[in-house]
Amino acid sequence: MNSFPEKPRPRVGLLVTCLVDLFRPSVGFSAVKLLEDAGCDVVVPEQTCCGQPAWNSGDRADTVALAKAVIQAFEGCDYVVAPSGSCAGMLRKHYPEALADEPDWAQRAHFLARRTHELVSFLVDVRGMRGVQASYPGTVTYHDSCSGLRELGVKAQPRELLASVKGLSLTELPEAEVCCGFGGTFCVKYPDISAKMVSDKAAHITSTGADTLLAGDMGCLMNMAGRLQRLGSPVKVRHVAEVLAGDISAPPIGQGEGEITR
C-alpha cells in the first residue's frame, strides 16, 4: 500500500480540514490522540482549506493555488491524514487531476496522493490498529459518508474499531450508503432538494432508536445534526474520532453548554 520504508515512528501531517478547524477542534485533538496511540509523530503544518469547494464549483485557478499550498505544507511528512473522507479524497483523487497540466506539480501531487489517508482507515489499514481503549455507554448508528465510502473504501474500518469501544453497541442505519444531502455547496445551491434528502436521512436515523449518530465527515455531521435538532430529536451527533479517542468532553455537535445531554 505504501512505498516507504517503515520508520519506527512515522511523521504524520494532520490535515485538519477547515470545518474541523473552525467548528469542531475537539475532532482535531481526537485525531492527534489516535495517531499518537498508533505510534505516529503528529505535526500540524499551517493550513487553510484543501480547495474542494473551489474544485467542485469549477474554479480551477483557485483550486490549483490551494492545492500547491497544501502540497508544499505537507512535503516533509511521511503521511498526510485527515479526519474526513472527502478532504482526503480531494488530495488523493483530485489533486493529480487538477494539476495534470503542470508535469512537475502533477508528480508532486501524485507523491502526496499516495501518502494521504482518511483517519480511521489509516489507523486500521496502515497502522494495523485493531481496537481502541475507550468506552461509550450507548447505542450508536453510523452513516457512511460518500467520498470516504466510494473514493477511499472506508466501510469496515470504523465498524471494526467501534466494536472495541466498551459499552457501545452499533445498530446499522438503513440506507447508510445513501447521501445525506450535504454535498458541499449543493446544500445552499439547492436547499429544497437537500432538505428533502436530509429529512429522509433523519427519518432513518430515528428509526434505528440509537441515541448517538456517528460519521467521519464534519460536513455531513453538521447537516444531519442541524436537521435532527430542527426536528427536536434528542439524538446526539459526534464525529467517530471523538468516540474512538474516548474524548467526549465537548458537547455533541450543535448542542450547547446550556443543554445537559450526558
Partner: peptide
C-alpha cells in the same frame, strides 16, 4: 438556504 430546514451548529 441552510437554516430554512436545519439548525446551524455553532463553532467552539
Amino acid at each position: 438556504a441552510w437554516t430554512a430546514a436545519r439548525d446551524f451548529p455553532a463553532p467552539a
